[in-house]
């Protein structure tokens, strides 16, 4: 029973990581690729880490996996934010189909200030 849960978690984690890779490849512009990269990968890796925690079962291992997950959850969004801002600022090629661009007016004002 214990193995089956670990196995399922592992495979689903792997699956999400693979989807993240696919996402990066298929999405048209930078910002959308970031969606895939940060969200899917964090989920994938998170699942694998929980699988590890369950597999070993010792307190130390659970704490270590939990710490790794927290670190990931902490760093991934900040990284994505910075990257997005930098990409947008430096005139990344944006997808035509984009419906709303909230950052446009704000970006102009900030550009002048620099």
């Amino acid at each position: 029973m214990h193995d089956i849960i670990v196995g399922i978690l592992l495979v689903s984690g792997g699956f999400f990581a693979c989807v993240a890779g696919l996402g990066i490849l298929r999405f048209p512009d930078v910002l959308m690729r970031m969606h895939a990269s940060t969200k899917a990968s964090t989920l994938g890796v998170g699942l694998i880490l929980t699988a590890v925690a369950i597999y070993f079962g010792t307190l130390e291992m659970i704490a270590r996996s939990a710490a790794t997950i927290i670190f990931l959850l902490l760093t991934a969004p900040v990284a994505a934010h910075l990257l997005g801002k930098a990409a947008y600022r430096t005139g990344a090629v944006l997808w035509q189909g984009m419906s709303k661009d909230e950052l446009k007016d704000y970006a102009e004002t900030e550009q002048e200030s620099q």
């Binding site: 902490l74 760093t75 900040v78 934010h81 910075l82 801002k85």
Partner: peptide, 8 residues
Amino acid sequence: NSLILRTA
């Protein structure tokens, strides 16, 4: 000088 980065 991004605020988010500084807090993180």
